[in-house]
Design a protein around this nucleic acid. Structure first.
Lengths: 152, 152
DNA sequence: AGCATACTTCAAGCGAACTTGAAGATTCCG
DNA sequence: CGGAATCTTCAAGTTCGCTTGAAGTATGCT
């Protein structure tokens, strides 16, 4: 079952991408990748599909849903090998998101370590040792730890 | 249905924590939070449970599973208000993980921007424009983008 | 041509994290 | 004490991202 010239069988694509065959079929079902078919209805993948699968895995690693990944993939040509510029555009889609996520984690990390390091002197900002009544006074309460702004 | 003195009804805890009542019951089922009961079997939460719920939400925000969050929560006293030191210990559990995740995202971000910025001169390290054959030569292929080390 | 291996579809299952709905009990304001 | 609003349990449903299995077909070496 070695691949003919420039096409990969599903097992080959699976082996090289690190995604299971069942996952690849699922991705196809969702429209993230595509395959041509042999006379006998078996999938054959163009080599550039490998890159699409890598892109999917990268996105998953970033915590993106397949739906979001598809949005990025939809911007590049489906049936011919994307150019370097195509991939650049797709990758750029994610830069802002990654940076935002990093900033969020750093904020979280700072919040947690201020609780740890300072003995919680800054009660107004300490989500975990914030007196309940103070948290309650903010309305929905303690929500600001989770994305909203702290109260001042 | 305002809360008696120092206990919260499930709706009150929900409103103040931002978690749905159904989620709170689910958390209880998993042992992340606990409640006492009225004579008529309704839940009443001690105020410090608000902090536990905030901790759960913080963990979810970090991308942790409820199972992992439980592991952290299990280290602090279940039925009395944890001390500042207790919370510090619990929060410290997550510091390393957050930092690792930040590092991972930064690595990812760098990989993607090298693809974008440099015109993919560094083909050996560019996951998205890596020639297929090179990726294939690494065995399972392109996996290093996703957590393993790059090949050199 | 024979035969092992790999492929196909389709339906069902799974685990995580909840939500929804039904049927019934409780709480508490007036 | 009446009754609306809230609570209870329990079972089932939902979305996501797959995996598993059954039943049947194709591929490709010898």
């Amino acid at each position: 079952m070695p691949a003919h010239a420039d096409h990969l069988t599903i097992a080959e694509l699976a082996a090289r991408s690190g995604a299971a065959p069942s996952a690849l079929r699922y991705y196809e079902e969702l429209g993230l990748i595509a395959a041509s078919r042999t006379a006998g209805n078996q999938r054959r993948y163009a080599r550039h599909m490998l890159r699409r699968v890598a892109f999917v895995k990268a996105g998953r690693q970033l915590g993106l849903s397949l739906r979001d990944i598809k949005l990025a993939l939809d911007k590049l040509p489906a049936n011919k090998a994307p150019t370097r510029a195509d991939w650049s555009r797709a990758a750029r889609t994610w830069q802002a998101g990654i940076e935002a996520r990093i900033a969020e984690l750093e904020r979280m990390s700072a919040t947690l370590s201020s609780c740890i390091g300072c003995g919680c002197l800054s009660l107004r900002r300490c989500a975990l040792y914030n007196p309940d009544d103070e948290a309650a006074s903010l309305g929905p309460g303690a929500r600001w730890l989770l994305g909203d702004d702290p109260p001042g």
